[in-house]
Design a protein around this nucleic acid. Structure first.
Lengths: 233, 233
DNA sequence: ATTATATACTGGTATAGACCATGTTGCAAG
DNA sequence: CTTGCAACATGGTCTATACCAGTATATAAT
């Protein structure tokens, strides 16, 4: 395998816990013991443990040892879904109007967030999203071309998340979102049928596949008065 | 000093950045150079850098170097914490000004969200929150009286979450949040040192104890330009 | 001037040891 | 039996060194 040793050990320990070798509250062997078992130095073994601690899977106590932590509800978080499911869950009819749809070279910011190689092309599309025919948001989605390879414009535009799962078996893993408030520009206001300067909920989202690869970067501007973001933590 | 060397170096680098020795985007000296300067091994120096990277103060790029990151006030979804810890995690000095502090009968909405009996009284306080003396948010917190029973105004106002944990052993379990965008009213704008109509990030949060009882209902209005809400799901 | 290539430099990974402070445990003294 | 203490185990910190895979830059070839 090509990945660093400490990642490999990380995975092996994780699998062992999932397989039931150690249960919640159990003490796992000491760092020195594990280092011998895995034929690595203690520092390298510690690095593997470190990442597991950061994931909340293990806990360390000086003098006592390293224990399997009781798992939080973290992964129970509402799954990563797209606009379509979001609207349907609210009993609203989802629809959208595609404003633009182009294959192009990514901006520096996009390239960075999607972790792209230099020569990679992306699909960028601007859409206005509606719930029960009332404009809810304006969004700019950027997707690496390879992800949507072989899919029709219709499939990509209508419901990317559903299409990726059914056609390619690609399931989103997690997403990172940044939320802030702003005010609408002239152009956006027109699309959303509001006045320039009206309150806008700005959301930038990077969605990752289960293997950790980013596959979509979306900048969304929601109409402040028509949208509310609910989350539990 | 008693603390580990890497923590001391962490603090020195942090202070140097705050003092303006390096600005956002600047490249700081390489790990090897800094290790010599601080008279420590490169591994120890790396540990100092590591903690700064985790705080979002620095960014590392292989082959290029280590750079001062663009700092933002942002909330990480890692845990349910109060304003104090949020600010400290960002290396900012938290402070607040209490606008009002009264015991009263809850509104219908508050009573509902806090699942209160008819005759229960609540504590309601309005506060302006600051990070490094810059106003970040205006919030209205409503707490059942029994929760803060026996606590001083000082303790409740300064850092409720910390006080509850240390004095009463009460630890927040989860929270439900609703986010939307709005614009600042005249009164709020004055508190936050912005103009009326400026973009506001509105957040309503219900916090629950680990046994599921709601213990706090907070309505917060963040300055759109000074706050960003980051979450992973 | 442009383009290819070699070289130096960067952070990332890994080793094998060392000492520390704290927690645990077993044994001796009461 | 309980108490106190010593020995041991554990994670935390630190060193000095080495090699790797990317990035940047100076140099050589075109």
């Amino acid at each position: 395998m090509g990945s660093p040793v400490y990642i490999q050990i990380h995975n092996e320990i994780k699998k062992a816990i999932e397989a039931g070798k150690w249960s919640v509250g159990d003490r796992i062997p000491s760092e020195r013991e594990l280092a011998v078992q895995f034929h690595v130095s203690r520092m390298t073994l510690r690095q593997a443990i470190q990442t597991l601690v950061e994931e909340g899977i293990l806990e360390r106590f000086v003098g006592s040892g390293t224990f399997v932590a009781n798992q939080k509800v973290q992964e129970k978080m509402s799954g990563v879904t797209g606009f379509t499911d979001l609207m349907l869950a609210q009993g609203k009819k989802p629809s959208s109007k595609t404003i633009s749809y182009h294959v192009m070279s990514p901006s520096l910011s996009e390239s960075e967030k999607l972790e792209l190689k230099d020569d990679t092309q992306v699909l960028r599309m601007e859409r206005v999203r509606y719930g029960d025919d009332v404009p809810i948001s304006f969004e700019v989605a950027t997707i690496p071309l390879e992800i949507v390879d072989g899919l029709s414009k219709q499939e990509v535009s209508e419901s990317l998340y559903r299409t990726l799962e059914t056609k390619k078996g690609l399931v989103p893993g997690h997403a990172k979102q940044m939320v802030s408030a702003s005010s609408a520009s002239e152009r956006i206001a027109e699309f959303l049928d509001i006045k320039r300067g009206d309150a806008i909920l700005r959301l930038r989202q990077i969605s990752y596949l289960q293997d950790g690869r980013p596959f979509e970067y979306v900048r969304t501007q929601y109409v402040g008065e028509r949208f509310e973001f609910v989350l539990e933590k």
